[in-house]
Design a protein around this nucleic acid. Structure first.
Lengths: 332, 332
DNA sequence: CTGAAAGCGCTTACAG
DNA sequence: CTGAAAGCGCTTACAG
């Protein structure tokens, strides 16, 4: 029903062989200009498009790139995906998107599927559960299959032997700290809802490297975190907050607002937010911009390059992208 | 390099024919239990997985579903995608995600690609540009190809002959209006950044059906909208705001906050927000919950059913899902 | 310059 | 119960 027009049907109509039709459409040197013309004209007329599945079987390429995202509802990953899409959509490849929903089991299923010959390359940010359990065998296995894979954002401390793309988390927080110091903030606390996540630990380390009397408030449970932040603010011992992730940032801002404090007066805040959302809000929260689209683009770029040159033994690279600080109303 | 283990290699190792191996692995009745055992054991031992491309070519199915989203950075669509993923990932299909980025041209490219035999079914929300130009030929063309397609969210007024899934936009706003009326709000304005979008018009119509002295503030340009909202609030002639979309909602809230007004006191607000973001914010904005994941699930469900029974001439259905109102701090 | 043949890795009537 | 053959729709050495 779909592709009634095939190489065979074109060949029959033109009274020539399938091979000649195929070669003509692929602009082979072997074929006379005249024949090519005839074939191409009819092909256009009949609206011929090669059956992609057949081409892939023949070429032994899937033309597809598998992407595993931990959580599409986190705007960070949505933007990363947009960046990936921008690069991939202008290549010959397509994206198959899988969501691990932070589950190790699901992540394994995704990689299993991918490694069964369904994709030519893989882009993955590991799930929270994977991060916690430090189980990476299913990822390392991909190497045996000869499928290029690029890790992004949450990069395990131990090298897994793949290209990686991340931002300078440690430095980002150091610079956020310095920014608050320049605002004469002297009692700066660190608030996190991702204490066990790799990026969360790096950010905390950045904070600890600067703070003389560190105050760290960290809970994975949002309600607990909320209560702790509330206490922290009510005690009035801090005049600056650095939040390690979007949830912590929103909670900090929310608690400050609820207390009726003036943004950036009694207490300054810098953290991580969704840029487009933040731009339309008041107060605009000062934030560390990770340029998620750039992360996506860089990740895709590396994979596309790998796919292009297909050399298996090239050593892997670790890309570290820079963040920038956008100052809003909560620190000025 | 990838699939060194194939039916052929298994057959050779077992000294039986490829067809017997194939049938054994597919649990054919024709094969003896003993042979099946031998084959399956070796297959497991060698880690055999059928080459998906070859299977697809044979079965004339791609096992893939194409999804076109206008804007992945809008949390609404991110959640819809999550809903779609939830259903599709437990089926035999996979999702190929394309982003139209609100461009008609890009949307056409996506559908062209899909219709060239790359997917078995399509899920699409049309781009803003498509909506504006009312150009739907590229969508209607899909019907000739016999590929099932389901439209969601932005459903053109004129029927295109496909299944559709949307929410009751008109009624949603009517109920939001009534909610504010119950709060003794008497001068309720309508604020929109999507005046030309189908859903925006329906929402506006809902508002107009209720308001005696309607005040509509609508601009696609965010900065203009911002100025207009500011004026509207400063004039102090309204005590209630209904926002038609996430951007309008955030701007309204931001302007109210900036004026130092107490949430829900001088002026009430209800609109559209990202639920998870809103839950962590203060003030929590009262909002119309569209249950985007449910939209995604319903959309995917319909397509999967179509794919299952493959009847071509079944009449199409229009599904209208209900929204609900979640009351926050901005109206109580 | 054109075409017959083999093959990509599978499935499935059909024969034995 | 097993296997040889044809075919899914292409591509590409190879012969002519």
């Amino acid at each position: 029903m779909k592709n009634v027009v095939s190489l065979k049907s074109l060949a029959k109509e033109l009274n020539i062989s399938v091979s000649t039709v195929s070669k003509s459409l692929n602009d082979s040197e072997e074929i006379s200009a005249q024949t090519k013309e005839r074939v191409k004209n009819l092909a256009k007329l009949r609206g011929y498009a090669p059956n992609p599945i057949a081409v892939r079987l023949q070429k032994q390429e899937t033309m597809q790139i598998g992407v595993v995202l931990p959580n599409i509802e986190n705007p960070f990953f949505a933007s990363v995906l947009k960046g990936i899409d921008e690069l991939v959509s202008s290549s010959k490849y397509n994206i198959i998107t899988f969501l691990s929903n932070e589950s190790l089991t699901r992540e394994k299923e995704c990689l299993d599927y991918f490694s069964q010959g369904n994709v030519d390359g893989i882009l993955i940010c590991i799930a929270e559960e994977t991060n916690k359990k430090k189980t990476f065998d299913h990822i390392i296995d991909i190497k045996q299959k000869g499928i290029p894979l690029v890790l992004f954002d949450r990069i395990p401390m131990q090298p897994l032997g793949f290209d990686t793309v991340k931002v300078n988390d440690f430095d980002s927080i150091v610079r956020a700290y310095e920014h608050l110091e320049n605002q004469q903030r002297r009692n700066i606390a660190f608030v996190s809802s991702i204490p066990t996540l790799i990026v969360g630990r790096l950010r905390e380390d950045g904070y600890l490297s600067k703070a003389n009397n560190p105050i760290v408030v960290a809970h994975e449970d949002i309600n607990e975190l909320k209560r702790s932040i509330e206490e922290l603010i009510q005690e009035k011992k801090v005049d600056g907050l650095i939040a390690a992730d979007i949830n912590a940032t929103l909670l900090c801002n929310s608690m400050i607002q609820k207390q009726g404090l003036t943004p950036s007066k009694e207490i300054a805040l810098i953290g991580y937010v969704d840029a487009s959302h933040n731009d339309l809000s008041y107060p605009k929260i000062s934030y560390i911009d990770q340029h998620p689209q750039e992360i996506g683009k860089q990740t895709a770029k590396i994979l596309l390059e790998r796919l292009e040159k297909k050399e298996e033994n090239v050593s892997t690279e670790d890309f570290v992208l820079n963040t920038s600080i956008t100052i809003g109303d909560t620190s000025s």
